[in-house]
Nucleic acid binder design. Structure first.
Length: 484
RNA sequence: CGGGGCGUAGCGCAGUCUGGUAGCGCACCUCGUUCGGGACGAGGGGGUCGGAGGUUCGAAUCCUCCCGCCCCGACCA
């Protein structure tokens, strides 16, 4: 094998996971940390997360939620109070047993999620129906000791937000659960250009301690599914475990109904795998750290020319900023324009402006589109007016591309054989009886699981389970798919 | 924890079989020429060869033990 310089990425249809890893590192999103399974999120990746945070946070505030912060350490004993919860999380708890140079009397878990400690405090804060609903959210890091990790998709420590609400009635809590799922779905579509499917998890896939788990599932470009956000209705489970009670209108003691909902840095993985191509990332404009990068082009030995180009680039950048565009001027010296073009393509910048002597002469700039690869000449004076529209259309095109890809990779199976065959290529609607053992058997045989019972989709009425032949366990056909 | 592979410069690797001055590409630094799709020349810096022990005149290379990482299987936002 000849030694070759590192150019280009592994094609995504040749080896998708190699492609994913290369994109993540080549775009400077993450780096390895010295501790296995945890990753450093580098500035470009973190800027993406900050944009996600900002938009989601605004949506939470708009739906009446307030932010607060709970501590990282939780007494291990708290997890034991809710039977399902402890069973679900014990295997992945990291526990602090020593501190201050000696063994702790009671070990402390590093939070994998905060239902328990929040429940403990909610019990104290909630006395009356007047205290309800309690609508809180926190942005935090959590830790789950995973065996196999991948950047963003599964890391031992990750960043997320977890909303925790308490309500007087089941109806209200269920409404909240659904409302926040819709917030996630809307965010995914309107900001990330990812056409997610909303649905409910089957019993086996439900959050530990929840009565209902709702999910948004996104399709990756290898046809697999990625659970991209979840919203849970806990019923009275945590209220009973932590004694969260209130006096209702009739002065009767009642347990609150709680919900929780979470959205994590995993979603960055969804963006990468839903939109990226063989040249690297393609970022949705509304979340991209730089929506537009201007590359000035000039001969170095022509100081005057360089200065003119530089001045014009700065002027254009100012005009774009005034028009609300996130723009960066790449004025680095010692790199050829071609090098910069490739770099910003790899990093998924939606639109690139090339500005050189020829353009100045013509009073134009070249606008290059990351999605289509097309270059268009645009009058300098028209840029500030034109680019916001272009970014908007970029978003629409990205969404449309993702939607048609998804639709082309969803099929329906009427027999088990069909399911086995079709689930190799994408998502498959099929009738399922709901029996967890059957679900496990199908997973064993195909690696595919029930991703969700979609809130909208083909009715299962009058059909029978493709696996057991029993009547459908759900009103609609479920979606089977391999998942991350 | 089972099966497979790998640890040599920041990254990617050769050298190990057959012991004899530690190399190559990229990246980095300096200078010059370049600049509209990954520029070129010249010069330069950078290494406890994963660790410990052993064999030997001499170990990246042979032997023993240890450590770490990656891939494949059982858990997961």
């Amino acid at each position: 094998m000849p030694v070759m310089a590192k150019r280009g990425l592994t094609p995504h249809d040749e080896d998708f996971s190699a492609w994913y890893n290369e994109v993540v590192y080549e775009a400077d999103l993450v780096d390895h940390s010295p501790v296995r399974g945890s990753f450093v999120i580098r500035p470009y990746g973190y800027a993406l997360w900050e944009n996600i945070q900002r938009e989601l946070d605004a949506m939470f505030k708009a739906t009446g939620h307030e932010n607060l912060y709970f501590p990282l350490l939780i007494p291990v004993e708290f997890f034991e109070r809710e039977a399902q919860h402890v069973e679900g999380f014990s295997p992945e708890l990291a526990v602090v047993t020593h501190a201050g140079g000696k063994e702790l009397e009671a070990p402390l878990a590093i939070r994998p999620t905060s239902e328990t400690i929040i429940g403990e405090l909610y019990a104290k804060w909630i006395q009356s129906y007047r205290d309800l609903p309690l609508l809180y959210n926190q942005w935090a890091n959590v830790m789950r000791w995973e065996l196999r990790t991948r950047p963003f998709l599964r890391t031992t420590e990750f960043l997320w937000q977890e909303g925790h609400t308490a309500h007087a009635t089941a109806e209200e809590a269920l409404e909240e659960t659904r409302r926040m799922l819709d917030v996630y779905a809307t965010f995914a579509r309107d900001f990330a250009a990812i056409p997610v499917v909303e649905g409910e998890k089957t019993e086996g896939e439900r959050f530990a301690g929840a009565l209902q788990t709702l999910t948004i599932e996104a399709m990756m470009r290898d046809g697999k599914a990625l659970q991209s956000g979840t919203s849970h209705y806990m019923g009275e489970n945590f209220a009973r475990a932590f004694d969260i009670t209130f006096n209702d209108l009739d002065n009767e003691q009642a347990y609150v109904h709680t919900t929780s909902w979470g959205f994590s840095t995993r979603f960055i993985g969804a963006i990468i795998m839903a939109h990226g191509d063989d040249a690297g990332l393609i970022l949705p404009p509304k979340l991209a750290p730089h929506q537009v990068v201007i590359t000035p082009i000039a001969k170095r030995n022509d100081a005057d020319g360089a200065e003119r180009v530089g001045r014009e680039a700065a002027r254009v950048a100012d005009a774009l900023r005034a028009a609300g565009v996130r723009v960066k001027v790449d004025a680095r010296e010692g790199m050829s324009p071609g090098w910069k073009f490739n770099e910003w393509e790899r990093k998924g910048v939606p639109l690139r402006i090339e500005l050189g002597p020829k353009d100045l002469e013509a009073g134009t700039a070249v606008v290059a589109d990351r999605l289509s690869g097309e270059k268009t000449s645009v009058a300098l004076d028209a840029l500030a007016g034109d680019l916001p529209d272009r970014l908007e259309r970029f978003h629409e095109r990205l969404m449309e591309r993702a939607r048609s890809f998804r639709d082309a990779h969803i099929d329906e199976a009427h027999t088990y054989e069909e399911l086995v065959e079709k689930v190799e290529h994408g998502w498959v609607y099929a009738t399922h009886c709901g029996d967890p053992e059957s679900e496990a058997a199908i997973q064993e045989a195909t690696k595919a699981t029930v991703r969700c019972i979609p809130l909208e989709g083909p009715s299962a009425e009058g059909t029978t389970c493709v696996h057991t032949g029993k009547p459908s366990g759900y009103p609609r056909k479920v979606i089977f798919a391999k998942a991350y």
